[in-house]
Nucleic acid binder design. Structure first.
Length: 419
RNA sequence: GGAGGCUUCGCCUAGUCUGGUCUAUGGCGCCGCACUGCUAAUGCGGUUUGGGUCUCAAGCCCAUCCCGGGUUCGAAUCCCGGAGCCUCCGCCA
């Protein structure tokens, strides 16, 4: 939810944000009028309620002969209050709906446009030159690290087993990511993959991307699509101590995505799957520090990429591709030789106060209680990272080079070879 | 899954049976002031959270006693539904 005060004071800024997102500007005016309507309804109900309260109090003191008349008036007033409260509830609901429909106000400098309109910030490393590169599915199958066929047999398309070296590789990546996070001051977390509706709603994933989310109807729970969800919900309905910020968590959890509408995309291998594990960085910071924290998250993501000795590029995602919560998003795309293309491995988003408002997370400081900013960044989305490692570090003899940073977690192994 | 108990403004707590100055008691903590060589102690005052109004200052008003309904002129209090925690029984990795 955006700040209604900002909306009232500077609606043009919100309109401009909608424009660069390619989103509907009229939503801004709908929100403004819903806000006005709600305040009017609240004022009316409040004053009626005040009147009724005063009259009610007088009932006990009224003399016996006055009482019936007072009661009759009070009863009438009670009906009016009830009607005003119905109006207020409707106005509240209308405001909330209009409020949820407006995405976060994008940061200055974000490129306008859609998916293809990103700005290239930097290219790091030189993509390896490989003659007739094989893709990760072929390599992973030969190493008996990935068993996609049995994944499909047991769970369906876009499922897989990591076996032997593949399983060890996941554990190594998770360990490496968690070790880096701990060194950087993050609190390690193993987070639930099932969350309540209000948490899912609060993180903004039930808007435009609702079709992506698995829902367990029998239990009214959602499967998270990213570890960010549980980490954002962790402090929901809390007032944090401003001096205790930043609070930084590194969460490990499974993530689930329906991949609705992605038929035909990345059908081979484990690049786009219904389930994968992930280590995610999540920060709660003072509002003024969000921009800097965003750059820090990106730097830590790059550090991890460098440890994996991957060549990659950093892009500034265009406004139309941001998602409702983020004001800006930096993606790291690593080189996949078999595809001759850079593919997204990590993503760092600054959600400013958008999620914290929805989840009712605030901070108490010297100048009172105020909002906090939340940010998230991928440290390691395991399945896709394994896919990239196999592809990027493949050797002519079919083995796979193991980056030095990963070796301690793989028993010192320098190359992966078929067992 | 079954039975019982509990949930009050940061923490603890009074109030619930018997509806009405509950505009929620007291303690702890915290903040301010006073006193005092300093600290401590003591005294006085303040201290839930959100919303509305407003010269966005004070003030005033409304909501808030786990959540949602209901009864009533009036609900922390009565009724119904739900959640969480605790104890016991059953089941279970």
């Amino acid at each position: 939810m955006i700040d209604l005060r900002l909306l009232r004071d500077d609606p043009d800024r919100v309109r401009a944000s909608q424009r660069v997102r390619g989103a509907d500007e009229s939503l801004v005016d709908a929100l403004l009028s819903a806000d006005d309507a709600r305040r009017a309804a609240v004022a009316r109900a409040d004053s009626l309620r005040g009147e009724q309260k005063a009259l009610s109090r007088s009932v006990a003191q009224a003399s016996a002969e006055d009482r019936p008349a007072v009661l009759a008036r009070a009863k009438h007033l009670a009906d009016e209050v009830k009607a005003a409260e119905v109006d207020q509830a409707a106005a509240d609901a209308a405001l909330r709906e209009a409020h949820l429909a407006v995405p976060n106000v994008v940061e200055d400098g974000v490129p306008p446009g859609g998916e293809a309109d990103f700005t290239l910030l930097e290219t790091v490393g030189i993509p390896p030159v490989i003659e007739r590169p094989r893709d990760h599915t072929e390599i992973g199958t030969a190493l008996r690290a990935i068993d996609a066929e049995r994944g499909a047999k047991v769970s369906g398309a876009r499922f897989y087993f990591l076996t032997g070296l593949g399983a060890q590789l996941e554990l190594a990546l998770v360990n490496l990511a968690m070790a880096q996070a701990a060194d950087t001051g993050f609190v390690a977390m193993i987070a639930p993959a099932l969350v309540k509706p209000e948490i899912m709603e609060g993180t903004g994933f039930l808007g435009a991307h609702a079709a992506e989310v698995y829902r367990l109807a029998d239990d009214d729970l959602y499967l998270v699509g990213t570890s960010e969800v549980a980490l954002a919900g962790y402090h929901s309905n809390e007032i944090l101590d401003l001096t205790a910020l930043p609070l930084r968590y590194a969460g490990f959890s499974s993530c689930f995505r329906r991949e609705a509408g992605s038929y035909g995309k990345d059908t081979r291998g484990i690049i786009r799957v219904h389930w994968f594990d992930k280590v995610e960085m999540f920060s709660y910071v003072p509002v003024d520090d969000a921009r800097d924290e965003h750059r820090r998250l990106l730097a830590w993501e790059r550090e991890f990429m460098d440890k994996l000795e991957l060549s990659y590029r950093v892009i500034d995602v265009a406004a139309g591709d941001l998602g409702s919560s983020a004001v800006r998003k930096f993606d790291i795309e690593a080189w996949f030789p078999s595809q001759g293309a850079y593919r997204e491995l990590t993503s760092a988003s600054n959600c400013t106060t958008y999620q914290s408002r929805r989840l009712n997370i605030r901070a108490r400081g010297a100048s009172g209680i105020g909002p906090v900013a939340t940010l998230n960044g991928t440290l390691c989305a395991v399945a896709r990272t394994i896919a990239c490692l196999l592809d990027h570090h493949q050797q002519p003899d079919g083995s796979v080079y193991v980056p030095a940073a990963l070796r301690p977690w793989l028993g010192g192994r320098e190359v992966l070879t078929a067992p």
